[in-house]
């Protein structure tokens, strides 16, 4: 087995570590890397971690149709979820709708999905967007599909926990409503991250390097997880793992 770690494998491992100790992780649309991370966390879990993956028949425990994910979240029965964004800003506001003056957007994205709900209700929402450039990580999003924080009178037990990109991990500071750089992936630098990030963020005096997956974890990702994720994301699995 090649020990050259692909960046997707690195991201799967990083996200998976954020799911330690969770008991129910849900995965939404178009999320092959978060989906793989949830399956990896389940494979490593000492307890009984449940994964509910949208679009999967094998890795899905719901029996009440499309509403059950949302009902479950509103009751506090989902611990972690993933969201992305065509644009994400420094206040963790996410835009899944488009660029330009809505509704006359110049660039149209698929749409908000369940973000305007799950972002409020799931305690640990991990933002994931591979592309880390100033066009994605912007000072202010053009359209707020879901805000990063809310006034106190709004019922909001959930919200952003971290932002994972191809270059680094940010943690979200709820009190300040700002991101703090947590770790930098091997091969990347602070200067590069500052240059490629359109928003301002906090920089602790010492910033660690993101820990790559162990060889056991890599083996698990390339075997069991590659196989399990291929049911829902066949193109992703075959491209990455040749499965």
């Amino acid at each position: 087995m090649s020990e050259v770690i692909k960046h997707e494998e690195m991201l799967i491992s990083v996200i998976s570590e954020m799911l330690n100790g969770m008991s129910h992780v849900a995965v939404g649309a178009s999320s092959p890397i978060p989906g793989s991370a949830a399956l990896l966390a389940r494979a490593n879990s000492l307890t009984d971690l449940r994964v509910s993956m949208l679009g999967s028949e094998e890795h899905n425990i719901f029996t009440n149709g499309g509403t059950e994910l949302f009902d479950c979240a509103a009751q506090g029965r989902i611990d972690a979820f993933f969201l992305g964004g065509g644009q994400i800003d420094g206040g963790a506001n996410i835009n899944l709708v488009g660029i330009g003056d809505y509704p006359d957007t110049k660039v149209r994205f698929p749409g908000s999905f369940g973000s305007a709900y799950l972002y409020y209700l799931v305690p640990r929402v991990i933002l994931f967007r591979e592309e880390h450039t100033p066009r994605v990580l912007v000072p202010k999003v053009d359209f707020i599909s879901a805000p990063g924080s809310s006034p106190e009178n709004v019922n909001r037990p959930g919200g952003p926990y971290a932002l994972v990109t191809e270059r680094c991990v940010f943690k979200f500071d709820k009190k300040k409503a700002r991101f703090r750089l947590e770790s930098i992936h091997p091969g990347h630098s602070l200067e590069e991250i500052v240059e490629m990030t359109g928003f301002d963020f906090d920089k602790p005096s010492t910033i660690s390097e993101t820990k790559p997956p162990s060889s056991d974890t890599l083996k698990l990702i390339r075997g069991k997880i590659a196989d399990e994720i291929s049911e829902t994301y066949p193109a992703f699995s075959s491209k990455l793992f040749g499965a």
Partner: peptide, 21 residues
């Protein structure tokens, strides 16, 4: 009227994207 137009792994929905543009 929808929460999204998505064709999953295949990319952005081409005719929807063009119609909005």
């Amino acid at each position: 009227e929808t929460a999204a137009v998505t064709i999953g792994e295949h990319g952005l929905a081409p005719r929807f994207t063009s119609a909005i543009k």
